[in-house]
Design a protein around this nucleic acid. Sequence first.
DNA 1: CATAGAATGGAACAAATATTCCATTCCAGC
DNA 2: GCTGGAATGGAATATTTGTTCCATTCTATG
Lengths: 273, 273
Amino acid sequence: MSAADAPSRLEIFHRRLAEESETLPKRLRQCADLVARAPERIAVSTVAELAEAAEVPPSAFVRFCQLFGFSGYSEMQKLFREAYAPRWPDYPTRIEVLRDHGQDSPGALLAEFMEAGRHSLARLAETVDPDALNKAVDVMAKAQTIHIAGFRRAFPVASYMAYTLEKMEIPAMLHGAVGQIETRHALREGDALVAISFSPYTPATIELAEEAQRRALPIVAITDTLTSPLRRLNGTVLTVNETDVGAFRPLTATLALATALVVSTGTRRIGSR
Amino acid sequence: MSAADAPSRLEIFHRRLAEESETLPKRLRQCADLVARAPERIAVSTVAELAEAAEVPPSAFVRFCQLFGFSGYSEMQKLFREAYAPRWPDYPTRIEVLRDHGQDSPGALLAEFMEAGRHSLARLAETVDPDALNKAVDVMAKAQTIHIAGFRRAFPVASYMAYTLEKMEIPAMLHGAVGQIETRHALREGDALVAISFSPYTPATIELAEEAQRRALPIVAITDTLTSPLRRLNGTVLTVNETDVGAFRPLTATLALATALVVSTGTRRIGSR
DNA sequence: CATAGAATGGAACAAATATTCCATTCCAGC
DNA sequence: GCTGGAATGGAATATTTGTTCCATTCTATG
């Protein structure tokens, strides 16, 4: 039942499908063909719809599912749904539950975070627009100094970017790292701001971004939901949707994105020197 | 109702969501947040599941849908299904798209980091010893204050751990974050040290670890190679081997490990309270 | 501190969806 | 062409899921 083996179970299913569909009777073969042809529709369709698309009666489709070892259509659908949007729980209760069942060995938890990480990375391909990414690198490559703002959960990302830029000898400034010192006046013409913020959005990040906007500096925003206040500014927005485990959200995908961003910036700067 | 304008209708919906979510009453705001955070889940979930994730009763979720002009949940779901079904995960294709934007494009680089990340995560399972992990959690759960040391590249990980521990209300101290101030005297009996360091090993981290050793405090070390100086101390060692892209090493796996460590510590503390 | 109006939670009800069952059809082998 | 077993379609049933309604709880206001 763990999230970890859901994708592999799907793999196995597809392999069996390929092997056996040859020897299946007519109607069932039609079902198999449809599943092979449009697996993504299974997650969001009813048996009736699928059956119609395969030109078989619903009962035939259910028989097909049972032939492959599922109790019925619903069970098979569950497999496909989880492959798309796996494991839920947004609430700490889950952790409680795990603990009470004695299954919260650190190893099990690590496995979950690994799985969540893999999923986040996979989704990154969907949420990041290549053009926006390109635009962002452009902005950063042209900036004199790159300002970086990210607090609380976003801070590790911000500090990593600052560190890597420094290593590449690119002028960068990590904001608000210390002592609550206002640093907005460091924003100067010709600079650019990278603002990183996730729900719940830290006001300081938003304020700095607004300040940058007032001064007409280009902004690159790394954020999550569609309601993010960073979206209201007219900067280049890169969306990351981390998959969370319990109430915790690892930064796996965000860091991959951040790394790509700074390294690209580095190579582009060298290229145009 | 054509498929063509479905995305735009979704756009409109999201904009309204962003605008109005501020002024919504508590429960409905929870719904709005969830929808903003995980829109793709709507396509494959029942009201009950969604409501649970948003921590509201199903009826509240239905009210939310109606507030935004839908007849109920089903109608809203239809919108999401249409918008998300056509462009499905299809991970390999997506990655191709990113790559095809040009050989040295940011997209191609991102794709590489994503691959590297996945690889690192996969290897994590091999390099981390479950017993060591368990031991590490034990040490951290028993400590009065958890000290965390990690500089340069390891700093993002250290700061993330400190942040998460703080969120869970566990006493933690992030060392050397600022001003080169010596903080070794903060190490007190009953505490534990988590030292994070990768090649080339920052002397400050090693020194602090040695200091901890002298004072007979338990040490948890997160490090990479087998020649790491952290290995010479008798602490609990967790090995991470990140796959690097060119000269750059993303922290994907390390962060997953760090998160698991911290969250496990949290649950174990609660359990033994 | 009382009150009205809004917000909320839950349980009863309605609709949709999946599953089972059985009468009918098909087809291979005699 | 007959016969038995497999395959099929559809209608009846069971189950899940969505929606409505109302009693109760909040909250802002006088």
